[in-house]
Design a binder for these strands. Sequence first.
DNA 1: CCTAAGTAAGTATCTATTTACTTATAGGCT
DNA 2: AGCCTATAAGTAAATAGATACTTACTTAGG
Lengths: 180, 180
Amino acid sequence: MGQRDAEATRARILAAAVIEFAAHGHSGGRIDRIAREAESNVRMIYAYFGNKSGLFDAALSDAIRRMAEEVPPRPTELPAWVGELFDFHQRRPEVLRICLWAQLERPEAASEPLETYLAKVESLQEQASPAISAVDLLVIIYAVAQAWQLAPVGLLSADGRASHETRRAAAVEVVTRILI
Amino acid sequence: MGQRDAEATRARILAAAVIEFAAHGHSGGRIDRIAREAESNVRMIYAYFGNKSGLFDAALSDAIRRMAEEVPPRPTELPAWVGELFDFHQRRPEVLRICLWAQLERPEAASEPLETYLAKVESLQEQASPAISAVDLLVIIYAVAQAWQLAPVGLLSADGRASHETRRAAAVEVVTRILI
DNA sequence: CCTAAGTAAGTATCTATTTACTTATAGGCT
DNA sequence: AGCCTATAAGTAAATAGATACTTACTTAGG
């Protein structure tokens, strides 16, 4: 790398880390691979992020921030929102993957960017009913948007006529019916 | 171990493997820990299961079989079924955990016990509607039953008045509304 | 010319898998 | 019944390759 640019190097490392950790998780992710892929150096990773866990947490926060920015909550149009979440997970499966890894491998880190979630809860408050609280509603909406990414591929391929659109429509329909 | 009993040793290893892999996954799970915890020996693991992946797959199949036996599908009473699935995941979180690890680390293995799922799909066929196919319905029901296990703990603890019962009721209510 | 950015080559530890060995036990033989 | 032995069950220790993290050094640029 001819020029020296700390910010750019840091950004390349972070981007490579998101990809690597989304693919292999914290324990399976390899520092050397990240360094190579970022066209940087192992030493730089430790300079910028301290250690492997620090890098993982930074990658996780980055991914969650992206999701919160790209798909902001729409408390008055929840069916439309679940559709956008569904699309997002198809478009960027690495974000859900890194969140799942975090939930399994570092649950304490997974709760870190909590304000993001709590803000959403507040805005959902008025949609809550005696049967389903605001938090539960948020939990369910996320689960429905992610459902197809969590299903074993073999099961999904059993549905010959299924497509992105039919699944998206099913997710939207579910949330519509929940709110009635 | 005074007595020699191949079956018993194999069973102890498998039980220890389920616990270890549910906690740390395929890549994070340690063969030595499994051998120690099973009060057996590294060599025996290789004798019975070939290699680490063979042991992981055996542990996964064992966990899925247990779930299929303990919570058989009830195609005509889906809301009741989702309630039982919800209870099961609270009671045995390790089953969902090992399935998630498999989905992330060895997706090809995760689809292996496919007949189990496909049988359920057939029985759900009559509940399907133009908006939601049988496969999609199954995918959604699983997702709702698991939803609270996938949510970050910080989000869940934000709901002060929530309990096992209120969440279970919310899951059942959701499926009830979906089917109308 | 001093500081921050970058590089290359270790090191110490860990970990899956193997090798070489010991011991219990079932079942045939006398 | 009691002995003998082939085989399966079990153990301990080595090996070979990774891998997170460090140390000691070089170079660009304000």
